[in-house]
Design a protein around this nucleic acid. Structure first.
Lengths: 146, 146
DNA sequence: TTGAAATAGTTGCATAACTAACTATATGCC
DNA sequence: GGCATATAGTTAGTTATGCAACTATTTCAA
């Protein structure tokens, strides 16, 4: 058995090791099975644009917990796929507003259904309250490290 | 408020967005502030070797929830840093046993103290029970997806 | 015993992440 | 007005991740 020295490490190892990649990988696999060839990270950006089209890159950074270079490249790749378009703001020329293309809009329902199905599967046997505690813990850990 | 269609997406987005990279990167930043210049992923491998030296790469895959190429490359980089050494098994020549170097042993106490301190900080205001619920939810999500 | 299947590990390719350094535009103080 | 500072976004360099295809070794069964 590990001694006390390792207790915190267990939790860290668990949080970053389990939750992150397992869910993402599974979702991405499902996407591919359905002929949708985008990465889970690209999906997470589209996800926020589906909720609110025309977000700036900085707003996408905040929404997805990513830094600016990460969003720059994700938007690059989404533009290559013709799913989004950068539109410079007229009020503030430093800002790019990211707009969904027609095909990105069409992708939405299909993708949402698939994602919800997979996430329901993943959350089988977990109560709503437990989910809330889990989210709360993760949020506080995140905030504590800021 | 997002409509129902987005409820699961919120959770997914939260778990993978927050827990995975955001927390890991912030921990890594803290490590760096304390003069420890290894990545959080390298640390997670060392962490398991500190508990049990001489694990095979496959055992490290299981322990860290990573695939084989990831471990191959992490071990590559740890070897470059002279922190570990691959030792072929005599019983089964397919297997590499990963052994800690002297400097890796020396790193241990210093690192553990710092990691525990940082992780305690990260878990400030979170009760033991909440942590247990969180771990339990993540474990079940992981199991559901396996 | 020999050949198929399983297992351990590596390599190539693509995407993504962070840091640091950079450009361009906007803001605000003197 | 003009210069310092802040903000939005990009680029370069390093590390990490996933998948698919590969080699080498072991196991097992016809």
């Amino acid at each position: 058995m590990p001694n006390n020295q390792f207790k915190r490490g267990e939790l860290y190892s668990f949080i970053t090791g389990v939750a992150s990649t397992a869910i993402a990988r599974r979702l991405q696999k499902k996407f591919k099975q359905h002929g949708l060839d985008i990465t889970i990270e690209q999906w997470s950006v589209l996800y926020h644009l589906w909720k609110h089209d025309g977000l700036s890159q900085q707003e996408l950074c905040n929404a997805t917990f990513r830094d600016k270079p990460s969003i720059t490249r994700l938007v690059d790749n989404l533009e290559k796929l013709k799913l989004v378009k950068r539109v410079p703001s007229k009020e503030d020329r430093r800002i790019n507003m990211i707009h969904l293309s027609e095909s990105a809009h069409l992708l939405r329902d299909q993708t949402m259904e698939m994602a919800n199905q997979t996430l329901n599967e993943a959350l089988g046997g977990v109560t709503h309250d437990e989910v809330e505690v889990c989210k709360s813990v993760l949020q506080r850990v995140y905030d504590n490290l800021t």
